[in-house]
Write a protein that binds this DNA or RNA. Structure first.
Length: 493
RNA sequence: GGCGGCAUAGCCAAGUGGUAAGGCAAGGGUCUGCAAAACCCUCAUACCCCGGUUCGAAUCCGGGUGCUGCCUCCA
């Protein structure tokens, strides 16, 4: 497959360090608040990458960290009067729930900074020994000017930055560009022992330590949001290669685009945030995921809540299509028409090729939609055989799995919970159309009885009664569809 | 101030030299008791503006305009 590499600024063929095997490290979250849509996007993008690579036959090792100790966590924990690691543990728990709802597969390894201190100390030791760092009054700092390639990833030069007005001023540094590898603890702060005194890791060192620890020098893909390019990833390269003594740190760098809200980047510090949890109250996780996959992963995504309504309609179409094939597939039948088989296999070919092209999800989704239309068209022209339906279902599901949109039961579950929420409204409808509402123990029983009453009326030719019932139900968000094999319903909030 | 990115129909969005994918919405039709769903048809002489290169440009180059990212914590 081809991917866009941030370092070379080119879209290149992905050639792994070891044939058939991909090692990837994705910068995870600093868990001091609920995850927002931007975090969700990044997680979904790299989850898609992993799924696609596995689908393409690679053995993938995916590492993603939690930066569970940092200044913001410490401050937030102090405000709440709890231990920093308790605070981060709580938000890690939330994050896991949110990601599960989005059908993000758990990474293979999820190291935490607080559990990687020894690796971090060892790495700093190597950097110091190689002469790229120095000990100062409040910690250990990396000497940026000693690393000649500094600025290559983010495309800036040390001298340009020096003239910039916004570099941090700190008298403990030899140069304003230097950054902390180890911060000595102030009284009362959480700390770990180190050769340089009690303290905690600086912001960037943990990712170098954890990625090298679990994947080794020269691993394949390092990813994250594009806001991490500078300084985080720039610093990671500098310190890692300083420690590795000239060996390459990472083969390919990938960065996912930001989510914008109100014309600005969504971020916790700006406060223009929609959390994943808030969104999941309104839409099934699969709909949220589909929304996120509609835009190419590198482009900024303009968050717009009305887009979720569109995504909902589209996901509904997918879920109904799957149900349609599943029903047809029950009937056993003779073989496939060659033409039908070629529809299925060329769909998969087009789908794979789209994702192999730097994860072109828009095109991959277009091929899914076209496939649905083709199969439906065939079904409307002649009866689709059971084996054909099964084959179509097989390829359709494999595509949905790669996209992580295979949890159609999520949509169905959403449907039934919506229905349960309509208890009250349905009782009113029952009363209006003359159905006794008392002796039904569930909302769906009640709906069934109403639908039955309508069916009787229809069969008796009393269309005015039947239509009235249908209109009443539509009024409460339940749309009935009369098919040849019975009544189906769609339900909306 | 420095270094980037983006601008395609009402909305979302692909396409990066060969004559505008796909989805939503909208309009018409088939089917249906009527609907819905499904299917069929229609829906950008045109890709922010002005120049240039080319047989040919949404795609390349130059200049504008607008929006935006990073340079500070950030996914």
């Amino acid at each position: 497959m081809r991917i866009h590499d941030t370092l070379t600024r080119k879209t290149v063929e992905l050639v792994p360090r070891e044939p058939g095997r991909i090692t990837m490290y994705v910068c995870g979250v600093t868990p001091y608040a609920s995850a927002h849509v931007g975090h969700a996007r990044t997680a979904v993008v790299y989850d898609l990458l992993k799924r696609y690579l596995r689908h393409a036959g690679y053995v993938v090792t995916h590492v993603s960290n939690y930066t569970d100790i940092d200044d913001k966590i410490i401050r937030r924990a102090q405000e709440q009067g709890i231990a920093p690691l308790d605070l981060s543990a709580r938000y890690i728990g939330e994050y896991l729930e949110d990601m599960a709802a989005l059908n993000v597969l758990p990474p293979d390894i999820t190291p935490r900074v607080s559990e990687s201190i020894q690796d971090i100390i060892d790495l700093i030791g190597r950097i110091v020994a190689n002469g790229y760092a120095y000990v100062s009054s409040d910690g250990v700092y990396f000497s940026v000017r000693k690393f000649s390639c500094y600025g290559r990833l983010s495309g800036r030069s040390v001298d340009e930055m020096r003239s910039g007005a916004r570099v941090e001023v700190n008298e403990a540094k030899e140069d304003p560009l230097d950054f902390a590898l180890w911060k000595l603890a102030k009284p009362g702060e959480i700390s770990w022992d180190s050769p340089w005194g009690k303290g905690r890791p600086g912001w960037h060192i943990e990712c170098s330590a954890m990625s090298l620890r679990h994947l080794g020098a020269g691993f394949d893909i390092h990813g994250g949001g594009e806001d991490l390019i500078f300084p985080h990833h720039e610093n990671e390269i500098a310190q890692s290669e300083a420690a590795l003594g000239g060996q390459q740190f990472v083969r390919y760098w990938m960065h996912s685009g930001m989510v914008n809200m109100g014309g600005e980047k969504m971020s916790k510090s700006l406060g223009n945030v929609m959390t994943v949890r808030e969104l999941l109250e309104q839409y099934p996780g699969q709909v949220v995921r589909l929304y996120l996959l509609q835009t190419s992963y590198e482009k900024p995504l303009k968050f717009n809540i009305s887009g979720f309504g569109q995504a909902f309609t589209t996901y509904e179409r997918m879920a109904e299509f799957e149900a349609f094939l599943q029903e047809l597939g029950q009937v056993s039948h003779e073989g496939l028409e060659p033409e039908f088989e070629s529809t299925c296999s060329s769909f998969l070919g087009e789908f794979d090729a789209s994702l192999a092209d730097n994860l072109n999800t828009s095109r991959a989704l277009a091929s899914v939609y076209e496939f649905m239309t083709r199969v439906r068209r065939t079904a409307s022209e002649r009866l689709l055989g059971g084996s054909e339906a099964s084959r179509a279902l097989e390829v359709f599901r494999s595509a949905l799995w790669v996209l992580g949109l295979d949890q159609t039961n999520d949509y169905m579950g959403h449907k039934s919970s919506l229905l349960a929420g309509k208890q009250h409204a349905l009782m009113a409808v029952a009363a209006e159309v003359g159905v006794a509402a008392d002796d039904h123990n569930s909302t769906s029983d009640l709906l069934d009885t109403i639908v039955m009453k309508r069916r009787v009326a229809r069969e008796a030719g009393q269309y005015d009664v039947a239509d009235q019932i249908r209109e009443r139900l539509r009024g409460v968000g339940i749309a009935l569809e009369d098919g040849v094999d019975g009544v189906r319903y769609r339900i909306h909030g």
